[in-house]
Write a protein that binds this DNA or RNA. Structure first.
Lengths: 239, 239
DNA sequence: CGCGGCTTTGACAGCTGTCAAACAGAGTGG
DNA sequence: CCACTCTGTTTGACAGCTGTCAAAGCCGCG
C-alpha cells in the first residue's frame, strides 16, 4: 500500500467506481516524494517525464509563457489531484508545471501505471476518464475566459475551486484554502492583476464571497453561482 | 475493412505508429453513415451516445450555449477527424456537436471500439493519445482567446486550421477549405462578428492570407505564424 | 426582380489594459 | 521597539481595444 497510490485511488473514485481488485492495484502504486518550493517547476516544456505527478500538499499550476513574458495559467491543482496524467501517452510536455506555494509532490513511475492499465480495465477506465475531465475543464475555462465579463469569470473561478476542494475533502463548511496571489488568478482568467483587483472589490461588496490570507469563504454559493452562470456538470464529479 | 475504420486508422496514424495487427483491428471498425444537414446537431448536451463520430465530409463544430443565447464554439472538426472520442469513457455530453455545413458522418458503435481497446494496446494508446491532443488544443485555444489581440488570434486560428488540413491530406499547396461563416469563427475566438470582420480586413491588407468563398489561402505562412506567435507543437502531429 | 443570408461600414459607449504610485503586512536586522 | 525591505494589494488617471446597435452593400438563388 503506497501512500501515493492511496491518494490516487481516492482521487479516481471521485469520477466513478472500481471493483476491489482494481482499487487494490491502484493503491499499491508508489514512488518518490519530493518537496517543491514555491515558484519552482516540476515539469518544463519539452520534458519527457517518466513519472506521473500527484499533489500531496500545496498548490500547483500549469502555464505557458507567451512571447512578451506574458504567462497564461491553464489550471491549478490542489492536494490529491493528479496533473499531467496525460504524460503517460503524449510524447512531450507542451507546457510547464510549477508550484504556486511550497508544495509536496509524489512521483509514480510510468512503468508501474502501465502495468495497472494493462491488467485492470476498470482502473484504466477511470484513469482515462480523469484525463477527459481535465479536457472538459479546459473547455469550460475557454468559455469562461472568452465570454464572461471579469466579475462573472472571477465568480466562476471561485465556484469551481470550492467544488473541487469539497470533492477532495479539503473544504470546511463554506470555506476552503486558496493560497494564491491575485496575480496568479488574474493570469488564469486572462485579465490584468489591476483589473482583477478592482473587480474583486465589487464582488466582495455583494457579500457573497470573501478571499483573504489564502482562504476562500463563500457565504452565498447560490448567488455567486448565479453571477457566474456556474453549473458543476462539467466537472463530472460523482460526489 | 470498414470505410469508417480506414478513415479512423489514417487519422490515428497522424499521432503515432501502430503494428499491423492493431492497424487491421482499427481498419475493421465500421458502422452507420449518416447525412447531417447544416446547423443540425449530431449530439446534444446531456446525451449518452453509444457511438463514436467520424467526420466523412463537411465541417462539424462543438459548442455550448451561454445564458443570453451567446454561443461559444469549442472546436471545429474537418473530414477524417474524430470529435467526441471522449464519449467512450465519460458519462454524458456536456456540450453540443453540430454541422457547420452539410456534412456526412460515420457512427462507430462503442462496443466495437471497446473490443479493440481491450485487445490491441497500441491502438488503445493512439486512441487515448488522440483525446489528449484534443485537450492540448483546448489549452492552446484558452491561451489564444485569453491573451492574444484579435488580429493575432485570427492569424493563429488560420494557421491551426491549415496545418490540420495538411495533416489530414486536405490541403492543396498553400490553401485549404474553410467553409465557415465569419460568425462561426468569431464565436470560436470569443469576439464579435463585427469586430472579427474589421480585424480580418487588416489582416487581408498584409497580403499574408486571404479567405473568401469558403477557401483559405495562406500566401505567407511564416509571416502569419509570426503575427500569431504560432507553433504547431501543441498539435503533436507526426507529419 | 426580389428575397434571405452573409459581409461590410459607421458611430458611439464601455470594459479592460497600461503606467505609476501609494498602501499594507510580514519578516529582518539594528 | 523601531526602521527597513520585500512582496502583494489597492487606487488613480488615461488610452484603446472591443462590444453594441443599426444600416447599407453584396451575392446567390428561386
Amino acid at each position: 500500500m503506497g501512500q501515493l497510490g492511496e491518494v490516487l485511488e481516492r482521487h479516481l473514485l471521485c469520477f466513478g467506481e472500481m471493483p476491489e481488485p482494481d482499487r487494490q492495484a491502484v493503491r499499491a502504486l508508489d514512488g518518490e516524494v519530493r518537496n517543491l518550493p514555491r515558484l519552482q517547476d516540476a515539469l518544463r516544456e519539452g520534458d519527457r517525464p517518466k513519472e506521473v505527478v500527484v499533489v500531496l500538499s500545496g498548490f500547483l499550476y500549469r502555464y505557458t509563457m507567451g512571447p512578451h513574458g506574458a504567462r497564461q495559467v491553464h489550471s491549478f491543482y490542489m492536494a490529491s489531484e493528479a496533473p499531467c496524467l496525460e504524460t503517460l501517452y503524449i510524447d512531450y510536455m507542451d507546457n510547464n508545471l510549477g508550484a504556486a506555494v511550497d508544495s509536496r509532490i509524489g512521483l509514480i513511475p510510468h512503468e508501474m501505471i502501465y502495468r495497472v492499465i494493462d491488467e485492470f480495465p476498470e482502473a484504466r477506465k477511470l484513469l482515462w476518464r480523469q484525463t477527459l475531465v481535465q479536457a472538459a475543464i479546459f473547455r469550460e475555462w475557454l468559455v469562461r475566459n472568452s465570454n464572461l465579463p471579469a466579475h462573472a469569470a472571477i465568480a466562476h473561478f471561485f465556484c469551481e475551486m470550492f467544488i473541487r476542494a469539497r470533492a477532495a475533502g479539503l473544504s470546511k463548511g463554506d470555506s476552503c484554502d486558496l493560497p494564491l496571489t491575485q496575480e496568479f488568478v488574474a493570469e488564469a482568467l486572462g485579465i490584468t492583476p489591476v483589473h482583477f483587483n478592482r473587480t474583486l472589490k465589487q464582488l466582495r461588496d455583494t457579500n457573497a464571497v470573501e478571499w483573504r490570507s489564502g482562504r476562500l469563504i463563500i457565504s452565498d454559493f447560490d448567488r455567486l453561482a448565479g453571477v457566474a452562470d456556474f453549473n458543476p456538470r462539467y466537472l463530472h464529479l460523482r460526489c
